[in-house]
Simulated assay, not measured.
Amino acid sequence: MKRLILMAAAILTAGIVSAQNYIIVNSEKIFKSVDAYNTAIEQLDSLAKQYQGQVDAKFAEVETLYNNYQYQKASLSSAARQARENEILAKEKEAQQYQESLFGKEGTLMKTRIKMITPIQKEVFARIEAYAKEVGADLVLDSSNNPTLLYNNPTVERTQQVIDLLKQK
């Protein structure tokens, strides 16, 4: 009886899975084919380097203060030492807050990234959806960052068709 139930379940599952029409796309390859995306990424990388230089300068200032303090520590009174240590700690905290304001989850770079990339993503995803509807696909799988995709038949790979559709605009 158990075998009969298991066999019926397997046949039913196989029938449901085979009835679905699906396609596979590589979103990373699609995004890299969009000039606006590549330009935005280059601008973001350049901005990140600029911001990193500013953050490095703030931390270099902290390091200089600390090195000067270490050099002069022996000749300072305990009150002067405490004041210098507090100054160094305050500068370090300021540098960390500045770094967070640029690179954090709510930082300037992330806000700029969202502002630049979101419209491109919306367009690409809309084109993928339009293509899927055009070919009657029930499901679209992304093969670019999915570590559980172990195999895909090249006949269901539709990345190039989506790229072509994007270029038709």
Rank of each mutant, 00 (worst) to 15 (best):
Y98A: 07
E87N: 13
Y151S: 03
D142F: 11
V25T: 03
V124T: 06
A36L: 12
S33M: 05
F103I: 02
N153I: 00
T148Y: 12
G104A: 05
A19C: 00
V135F: 01
F59H: 07
Y22W: 07
Y66G: 07
M7D: 10
E28P: 02
A60F: 07
E92L: 10
R3C: 08
M1G: 14
A60T: 08
A8Y: 06
S75N: 11
I41Q: 10
I11Y: 04
N26Y: 02
L47F: 10
E92Y: 14
Y37E: 10
E129H: 12
Y37D: 10
F59M: 12
Y66R: 15
I117F: 09
E85N: 09
D56M: 01
K122V: 14
R84S: 15
D56H: 01
T118P: 06
I24D: 02
E63F: 08
S144V: 10
N67H: 09
Y66W: 12
Y131R: 01
Y151M: 02
A80Y: 02
Q72F: 03
I16K: 00
T112Y: 06
V55E: 00
T108F: 01
S78D: 12
A57F: 03
Q160F: 01
A80T: 05
K167S: 08
E94Q: 14
L139G: 05
L12S: 08
Y69S: 01
S77N: 00
Y98P: 09
N21T: 13
M1L: 13
V34F: 11
D45E: 14
L65C: 05
I24M: 08
S77K: 02
E92K: 15
Q99T: 06
N26A: 05
Y71D: 12
S101W: 08
R127Y: 05
A60V: 07
R81P: 03
I114E: 13
E106C: 00
V124K: 09
N21L: 03
Q99A: 15
T39D: 14
F125W: 09
D142G: 13
E123D: 15
F103W: 04
K169M: 03
Q161L: 12
Q43G: 11
V34E: 14
Y22A: 13
Y51H: 05
Q121D: 15
K58T: 03
